[in-house]
Amino acid sequence: MKYCAFLRGVNVKGTNMKMAEVCQVFKDAGMEDVVSILASGNIVFSSDKKAGELKKILEKAMSDHFSYEAFLFIKSQEEIENFWNRNPFEKNTDLHSYTFVANDGIENILMKEFENVIKTENEDAKIVDNIFYWQVPKGNTLDSTFGKILGKKSLKDQFTSRNINTFEKILKKF
């Protein structure tokens, strides 16, 4: 089965790693057809194992190799198609749209956080089929009140986010 692993916190705040090295860790852990998409920790691969088992194997392999606490979210091709197809926001060159790859239920926590912050003009969030989507004006992602909440340590193992365009690139690799 084809999967994509979404790594949390890669190439930010001192956790730097080359994607070629990450791919090698995946191969050494028994994954096949391994390829990275962008430098933000998106690894497409094949395996006969289930996503839950893969998460444990790959988090341990990444943690051991890079000496950091790895958090990965493993999604199937079908799940990634859902992320792409259910995006509720229209394409707008002035806005970034993000999709959150997350543990079950985190979308409701994120929505409560979003509802309680001061928003920038045109900033919006929606939940579609248990997937949290966030749209923010370009240049405001890290400066927005909600963007700052996303870095909370208490949430670090709960989700990772990607620009919606990343899912299109991943789907093309499948």
Rank of each mutant, 00 (worst) to 15 (best):
M1V: 13
Y3T: 02
C4V: 15
A5G: 07
L7S: 03
R8D: 06
K13W: 00
T15D: 11
M17I: 08
A20G: 05
C23G: 12
C23K: 15
D28L: 12
M31N: 02
E32R: 15
E32N: 12
V34H: 01
V34W: 03
V35L: 14
V35S: 13
I37Q: 09
I37C: 11
A39G: 12
S40A: 10
V44N: 00
S46N: 13
S46R: 11
D48V: 12
A51N: 07
E53M: 08
E53V: 10
K55E: 11
K55A: 05
I57E: 07
I57C: 01
E59M: 07
K60M: 12
D64S: 13
D64H: 07
H65M: 06
F66E: 04
S67D: 12
E69L: 11
A70D: 09
F71A: 12
L72Y: 04
F73D: 00
S76C: 13
Q77H: 10
E79L: 05
E79N: 03
I80R: 02
I80H: 03
E81H: 05
W84C: 09
R86L: 14
N87S: 13
E90F: 10
E90Q: 15
E90V: 13
K91L: 10
L95I: 14
L95S: 05
L95N: 11
S97F: 05
V101D: 03
V101Q: 01
D104R: 04
G105N: 00
G105D: 07
I106Q: 13
E107L: 01
E107R: 00
N108M: 02
N108C: 00
M111D: 08
M111K: 08
V117K: 11
E121F: 09
E121W: 04
E121M: 11
E123A: 08
A125S: 12
A125H: 01
K126M: 15
V128M: 07
V128D: 07
V128Y: 04
D129M: 01
I131R: 08
Y133C: 01
W134R: 01
W134G: 02
Q135I: 15
Q135G: 07
Q135R: 15
Q135A: 12
V136F: 00
K138E: 05
G139H: 11
N140A: 09
L142D: 00
D143N: 14
F146W: 03
G147D: 01
G147C: 07
K148I: 09
I149T: 04
G151V: 08
K153M: 10
S154Q: 11
S154Y: 10
S154W: 08
L155H: 02
K156L: 14
D157T: 13
Q158S: 10
Q158F: 08
T160N: 01
S161C: 08
R162M: 09
R162H: 07
R162K: 06
R162Y: 06
N163I: 13
N163Y: 10
N163W: 13
N163D: 14
N163Q: 14
I164C: 03
I164K: 03
T166G: 06
T166W: 04
K169V: 09
I170G: 00
L171S: 07
L171G: 05
K172I: 14
K173H: 14
K173D: 06
K173T: 13
